[in-house]
């Protein structure tokens, strides 16, 4: 029986793709973005968040079979149908469990459920090949075009990510490039110009901008680990507008909330 290492299953997700969705957050990530919004998903091991004021603790990390996940997400089938929604596979990096994730997305496809994959793309191409046939849409994070930042602060492999995105964009899947705008990482004119150059080479036509927010502060506190972005204010509207201006000659730009 194939098991998936799950962080959480979130019903009525309205920020993770079209329509009403259920998001399956997979445990484990191979990147270490210091601004991460889902720190509880990074480790493959179980993580407990404790909230002393609320006298509450929540543990993330459990093993579930494909059938168990399908049963749970199919509870909301009527809502997917009515809203044009479906299931989002996020994390963590779902493609670290590509084989099991493929089984899950195939099962969902068999039930007529639209599947969206949310990935940072820093995995061998064969992982995409396993999952893509049963996925309709891919959210692909583009974090930086600075190879030093990518290697030293994030722990990723820029050429691999770039070649994966270029290959994805040659498939018939809906590929959505998303840039998290992070102060000090990718909001300067030079950083954005470099990103635009890279993305043009991959063949991307549209990009979505996700401005930094620090809603994850509480999670870091509950995990008892420092958050480097604790004192960073939400991205100023001006910075978001300027980023859109720099990118818009090359791409159709969407700004998300």
């Amino acid at each position: 029986m194939i098991q998936l290492n799950i962080s959480d299953i979130q019903h009525f997700s309205v920020g993770d793709g079209p329509g009403i969705r259920t998001t399956v957050f997979l445990k484990g990530c191979n990147l270490r973005c210091p601004w991460c919004h889902n720190p509880e998903t990074v480790s493959r091991d179980t993580v407990t968040l404790t909230y002393p004021k609320a006298n509450k603790s929540v543990t993330y990390g459990r093993s579930m079979t494909v059938d168990e996940i399908v049963t749970e997400v199919m509870e909301d089938a009527d809502f997917y149908r009515q809203s044009g929604g479906g299931v989002t596979l996020s994390g963590g990096e779902p493609l670290l469990q590509a084989e099991a994730v493929a089984k899950l997305s195939q099962a969902l496809q068999g039930h007529g459920i639209s599947v969206l994959l949310d990935t940072a793309g820093c995995v061998p191409w064969c992982r995409f090949e396993a999952v893509l046939p049963s996925v309709d849409t891919v959210f692909f994070d583009w974090k930086t075009s600075d190879p030093t930042i990518m290697r030293e602060r994030i722990g990723g492999d820029l050429p691999l990510i770039k070649s994966n995105l270029a290959r994805l964009l040659r498939t018939d899947k809906g590929i959505h490039v998303r840039i998290p705008l992070i102060p000090g990482v990718n909001t300067s004119e030079e950083a954005l110009t470099a990103i635009a150059a890279d993305l043009r080479e991959t063949g991307a036509k549209t990009v979505a901008l996700l401005p930094f927010h620090r809603l994850a502060v509480g999670k870091y506190e509950a995990m008892g680990i420092p958050y480097p972005y604790r004192d960073t204010p939400p991205l100023p509207a001006d910075t978001l507008r300027r980023a859109a201006e720099i990118l818009s000659p090359s791409f159709t730009v969407y700004a998300e909330k």
Binding site: F12, G19, I20, D78, F79, Q82, S83, G84, G85
Partner: peptide, 15 residues
């Protein structure tokens, strides 16, 4: 997001 809320309410009435 408004459309998603509308869909939720529709399902509520359908059921």
């Amino acid at each position: 997001r408004r459309d998603k809320l509308r869909a939720l309410i529709r399902v509520y009435f359908q059921k």
